[in-house]
Amino acid sequence: ATVHVKGVTYHFDNPEQAEKFAKRMAKELNGEVHVDGNTWHVD
């Protein structure tokens, strides 16, 4: 799974980790999470 945060890409072997990371980053950055298959975007 892949997480894109403000133009930076993070790779996770575990999709659950990717989801938790994306949601945590969105919270910290006051952003929104969008999911597209195995790819998470934090804007």
Rank of each mutant, 00 (worst) to 15 (best):
V33P: 05
H4A: 06
V8L: 11
F12V: 01
W40F: 13
M25W: 08
E32W: 15
E16M: 10
V8I: 13
E28S: 07
D43T: 15
E28L: 12
H4K: 12
A1H: 13
D43F: 15
H34Y: 13
A26H: 02
W40T: 02
K20V: 11
K27W: 12
V8H: 10
D36T: 12
E32L: 13
G31E: 04
Q17Y: 07
D43K: 14
V35G: 09
G37H: 05
H41L: 11
T39D: 10
V8F: 11
H11G: 04
E16V: 11
H4S: 09
K27S: 10
G31V: 11
F21Q: 01
W40V: 03
A18K: 00
N30Y: 06
N30G: 14
N30R: 09
F12I: 01
D13R: 08
D36R: 11
V5L: 08
G31C: 14
K23F: 13
H41A: 05
H11K: 09
A26D: 01
G37R: 05
K23V: 11
H34Q: 06
V5H: 04
V42H: 01
F21I: 02
H4P: 00
G37W: 03
T39L: 06
V8M: 12
E28W: 10
E19M: 08
A1M: 07
E16P: 04
E19Y: 07
V42W: 02
G37L: 04
T39M: 11
K27G: 06
H41I: 15
H4M: 13
A26I: 03
H41C: 12
R24D: 11
F21H: 02
V3L: 02
D36N: 12
W40M: 05
V8E: 09
H34N: 06
E28V: 11
V33N: 02
H11F: 14
G37E: 05
G31P: 01
T2V: 12
V42Y: 02
H34D: 04
G7E: 05
A22M: 02
D13Q: 10
E32F: 14
N30P: 05
T2Q: 10
T2W: 14
A22C: 03
R24A: 13
H11W: 14
H4D: 05
K20F: 10
K23H: 13
F12E: 00
E32C: 15
H41E: 06
V35S: 10
V35N: 12
E16A: 12
T2S: 10
E19A: 09
K6F: 15
H4W: 14
K27I: 12
E32Y: 14
A26S: 05
Q17W: 06
E16G: 08
D43N: 13
H34G: 04
V5R: 02
V33A: 13
N14Q: 08
K20I: 13
N38F: 10
A22G: 02
V35E: 05
G31N: 03
P15K: 11
A26P: 00
V35P: 04
Y10Q: 01
F21T: 02
H34F: 12
V33T: 06
N30C: 12
T9G: 04
W40Q: 02
T2H: 09
V5S: 03
K20R: 13
G31I: 05
E16K: 10
T39I: 13
E28Y: 10
V3M: 01
T9M: 11
R24T: 09
K6V: 06
V8S: 07
F12Q: 00
A18F: 01
K27L: 13
D13W: 07
E28H: 08
E28A: 11
K23P: 00
E19N: 05
L29N: 04
R24N: 08
A22N: 00
K20G: 07
